[in-house]
């Protein structure tokens, strides 16, 4: 059980693929202009990550070490194609708005990184859970980033969520405030860099605070010496 807990902590916070490993930044920066896009890409990445981790873990004992990377890439590409076809079939609007970034999930370093670093060395159930947690960590960051950029850029949340979740989701759209001029920078890629920088800074601040709370004020290890003859 403790192994699962470690995996959960690693994926979502301590070793978060987006905030700590800084892997898969290209889709992260490119498509997080709205929550819907971010959630769509996050879910796609999550599915691919779980699938590829399970498959890699299944075949880990038969794949020769020398050609493992091409094999992993083939497996990942297979899952990406599956996800792409599924999105094409069921969420066509989102498929169009994400465009090239769905097939580009193949090149997401976070996925091949987990296949190489974890799934190729661990049993199936743990690999699946690791994929789930890493994908979840990645998706959370994507969604938070998407929310920040959508809020600052156009003052809404969950705009056009119906592309992903079906017609009922139109009512999810929240107009927090409205203005005549979009804050273009938040929607353009530079805004994504700035927002990601702020998120990483926020994580570091929280980590520093946790650390300072954990380390209790150091107690005097030895009693004060009555007579000090040397400084050692």
């Amino acid at each position: 059980m403790s192994e699962l807990k470690t995996l959960y902590k690693e994926g979502v916070w301590v070793n978060n693929p987006a905030l700590v490993q800084l892997l898969g930044l290209c889709p992260l920066l490119a498509v997080t202009s709205t929550i819907t896009n971010a959630l769509g890409l996050g879910l796609a990445t999550l599915l691919v990550l779980v699938g590829s981790n399970i498959s890699v873990s299944i075949v880990r004992n038969w794949v020769p070490k020398d050609i493992r990377i091409p094999v992993f890439v083939m497996i990942i590409a297979g899952f990406v194609t599956i996800v792409q076809l599924l999105m094409n079939a069921y969420t066509f609007g989102l498929y169009q708005s994400l465009g090239i970034f769905i097939p580009l999930i193949v090149t997401n370093c976070a996925i091949i990184g987990r296949a190489e670093a974890y799934a190729s060395k661990n049993p199936i159930h743990l690999s699946a859970f690791d994929g789930l947690m890493m994908g979840l960590g990645f998706m959370i960051v994507l969604v938070v980033l998407g929310a920040m950029r959508e809020l600052i850029g156009q003052g809404t949340l969950f705009d056009s969520a119906d592309l992903l979740l079906g017609p009922w989701a139109q009512s999810l759209r929240i107009e927090v405030f409205s203005f005549d001029n979009q804050f273009l920078l938040a929607i353009l890629p530079p805004g994504a860099f700035l927002a990601l920088g702020l998120l990483i800074a926020a994580k570091n601040v929280i980590d520093a605070q946790i650390k300072s709370k954990q380390i209790a004020p150091p107690e005097a290890e030895k009693g004060p010496r009555a007579r000090v003859t040397s400084l050692t």
């Binding site: 001029n181 804050f183 273009l184 920078l185 938040a186 353009l188 530079p190």
Partner: peptide, 10 residues
């Protein structure tokens, strides 16, 4: 530059 990129009209 931030302003020019974000609010080209104004």
């Amino acid at each position: 530059v931030l302003l020019l990129v974000s609010f080209p009209v104004q």
